[in-house]
Amino acid sequence: MEANQIKKLYQAMSENGFSTLELELGKKNRVRLTLEQTSATEMIPGDVLAQLAEVEDSETPANTQVEIRSDKVGTFTFSDRKLKAGDRIKKGETLGLVKGISFQDRIKCSLDGIIHKVEVEDGAVVDYGRLLFLVNID
C-alpha cells in the first residue's frame, strides 16, 4: 500500500468520524488504521437521553441542566399534568408519553429537579433525538 493511499484513507476516516478501520488486502495482509480523535459523535443509548451539561450562569452558582430527549418516534402527550417552566418534578416521574404505532414510551427524568423550559407541545409529532424538556437538577 502506498503512502498516498493511506493518506486518503485517513482523510476519509476523519471526515466520517471513524476512529479505526481494518482492511483486508488479499488473504495474508491485514492493515489496521487507528485515528485518534475526540470529535466523534456518540449517542447515549437508553430510554431517555439525558445529557448532562454544565451550564455557566452569571447570577446563580453553576447548576446542572439536563436535556430530556425522545429516542422514539411518535405523538407526544403530557401525562397527568401539563408541565410548564418552574414546575418541580420528582425522580422517576412520567413527564409525558410518546405513542408510536406499536409502543408507548414513558418520558422520565432520572433525578429530582425543576423544569427550566418545555420544548414540546401536547399532540406534537416528535422524532428521534427531539428535545422535549430542559430540567435544572437539584
Partner: peptide, 24 residues
C-alpha cells in the same frame, strides 16, 4: 422526521419508527 442514528439497522431499517411516522 429523524428516525434514528446513522446505522441503517437503527434508522432506515427501523420498521416501528418508520410506521410510527407514517401513522402520526
Amino acid at each position: 422526521y429523524c428516525i434514528g442514528p446513522a446505522r441503517p439497522d437503527l434508522s432506515y431499517l427501523n420498521i416501528p419508527n418508520i410506521l410510527s411516522v407514517a401513522h402520526a
